Computed example of a mutant assay.
Amino acid sequence: MVTLSPGILLIADPFLKDPNFARTVVLLCDYQEKGSFGFVINKLFDQTLSDLVPEVLISNIPVYYGGPVQMDTIHFVHRHPELIGGGQEILPGVFWGGRFDHVVDAINKGLLEPNKVKFFIGYSGWTEGQLDEEVKEKSWILSDTDTSLIFERREQQIWQQSLKNLGSTFAMMANYPIDPSLN
């Protein structure tokens, strides 16, 4: 049984109507009694990294909507601890954060592999007990992380694939309409 902890995926229930989280998958980066946070990994933001950070010289690096909290901040997860110091390992070989100047330098030198780093604007956060309550209410389906999904660039497939990875019972849910009354 999967329990709340850093590195797991929170898969939105098919009928979750919250516009911030409908059909999303959140990578949980920190889980503590006082609160938790993570990043939506499958919701593309409408600007690229170079639009948001002028020092970045490469113009086609996507940014994802990490969540509705602090939409004036940029975060990242990566698989490049040898290039980016100061990150926190949340899964074997997957790190959250680190020195942003190292990231910009590595990007501008062409050293970062696009399938090993993902950028987010804002984050998803929960206050003390809030995430536990949402899980009890069945707003979220918990899953061990398939690390390939974290860095997947075809964001529209991540939610469905996350459910399919859980087996046939959940795979059926991947095709449920958002509002069954409209069927």
Rank of each mutant, 00 (worst) to 15 (best):
I41R: 02
I41M: 06
L44G: 11
L44F: 14
F45H: 13
F45E: 12
F45N: 12
F45Y: 13
D46F: 11
D46H: 13
D46K: 13
D46Q: 11
Q47D: 05
Q47H: 12
Q47C: 07
T48D: 08
L49H: 06
S50F: 00
D51Y: 05
L52R: 03
L52C: 00
V53C: 07
P54I: 00
P54D: 12
P54M: 04
E55R: 14
E55S: 11
V56D: 00
L57R: 11
I58Y: 15
S59F: 15
N60P: 05
N60E: 11
I61V: 14
P62R: 02
P62Y: 06
V63S: 10
V63M: 05
Y64E: 08
Y64N: 09
Y65H: 12
Y65K: 05
Y65I: 06
Y65A: 04
G66D: 01
G66V: 04
G66W: 00
G67S: 07
G67K: 07
G67I: 09
P68E: 06
P68I: 13
P68M: 00
V69P: 11
V69E: 09
V69G: 13
V69I: 11
Q70P: 05
M71D: 07
M71I: 11
M71E: 15
D72K: 07
D72N: 12
T73Y: 02
T73A: 05
I74D: 09
V77T: 10
V77S: 00
V77Y: 02
H78T: 02
H78A: 03
R79L: 09
H80V: 15
P81Y: 03
P81N: 02
P81D: 06
E82I: 14
E82N: 10
L83D: 06
I84K: 10
I84F: 03
I84L: 01
G85H: 08
G85E: 08
G85I: 05
G85Q: 13
G87W: 04
Q88G: 15
Q88C: 13
